[in-house]
Design a protein around this nucleic acid. Structure first.
Lengths: 193, 193
DNA sequence: GTCAAAATAGAATCGGTATTCTAGTATACA
DNA sequence: TGTATACTAGAATACCGATTCTATTTTGAC
């Protein structure tokens, strides 16, 4: 019993994604989300108790999507593949990439994580840490602090750096990016088998 | 003729710097600047016509300070030194580094550059471009597009990425950062003489 | 058909922040 | 000592965006 829904959660989350990607965090207002979804603000608040929750869901959905593929490669022991996963993912998911790599979470949300969602964030962070540690051990022999730093640098920080410039300019990362990321991985971690 | 000033431009700019570094862009309000400088808001507006102008001055002052040392090394032909300039500068100028590397200009300013200041920004961008081009030519033989990308990556993007994680955590970048930046430079550009 | 539940609608609040306004103050110079 | 001037002061205003409130609409069950 009750009326059929006209809007869905994802409709609003998608609208928010478009807005952040195109106009940046300052353009992301509840009114703008409603407008883009062709809905009144009240309907947005019917789905999400606050802007922070809406944004947190968007952020989590995006990180989970990114991390899933990344960890898969890592578990296969494919280090240079994991390093190049970032530029590849960015080409496939341009708006999501702009959200994730051009802005910090706290730029988009005013408060802390909504309680309901802290579990999901812990799971993500835990997964990443475990996989990274295991891979480092398998790859460099021992997961010392220095080795972990090295791995973070080669697998995450450098690909991010390589890609950022192009995201900012609204362009797809060119092929040279993959080249640079790969060369750096080899230099810092070593050639693969 | 006229009353002696009690406050100075720099007093307010410094206050703004502290605030951004400690509380992030959302903490940077004109009231906060006034409070930290122990002045009333009216006095801030007596010095700066708007928040955007205040922020723009802060931003420019900081970029100029950073870029000066960077270009000096580049003109000396010291590539790996220039690459390691970033972590070093960050250790010396913690608050400035957090301003520059943790936030984008448009996070801090609502509008465009104030007209008065566009010249200074063009000069900065122009200087950097010229130096980079010249250095690339001297170093890699020819300033092709690919070579410039390579140089941007090794000299700017990678050092930035290597340092960011620590700035975010409020820590000084450890020694391993310099090591990684340097190894990457060698791998991507080549050993120096 | 009628009722209750689930949703839509969008106008009305409410709070926070940049900016403006109107007075008051101190200093140099006559 | 008087006065013009550059400055300090902080209260009042204006605006913008999140959130709330009060209908209104649609639908399934009886």
């Amino acid at each position: 019993m009750g009326r059929k829904p006209r809007y869905t959660d994802d409709l609003f989350i998608d609208a928010a994604l478009q807005i952040v990607s195109m106009e940046g965090p300052s353009g992301l207002t509840m009114a703008a989300v409603a407008r883009r979804a062709k809905a009144p603000v009240g309907s947005v608040y019917h789905r999400f108790p606050s802007k922070d929750v809406l944004v947190a869901e968007l952020w989590l959905r995006t990180v989970e999507s990114f991390q899933e593929g990344f960890l898969k490669l890592l578990k296969q022991g494919n280090g240079s593949g994991a390093a190049m996963y970032t530029p590849r993912w960015v080409r496939q998911h341009f708006n999501e990439a702009r959200l994730l790599l051009l802005h910090r979470r706290d730029e988009l949300m005013t408060g802390d994580w909504p309680d309901k969602l802290t579990d999901r964030t812990y799971r993500l962070a835990g997964q990443l840490e475990r996989c990274l540690e295991e891979f480092t051990q398998g790859c460099l022999g021992e997961a010392t602090d220095d080795n972990l730093q090295r791995m973070l640098f080669a697998l995450i920080d450098v690909p991010y750096a390589a890609v950022k410039r192009y995201l900012q300019a609204g362009q797809s990362p060119p092929a040279i990016v993959d080249e640079l990321v790969c060369e750096t991985y080899s230099a810092v971690i070593g050639e693969e088998k």
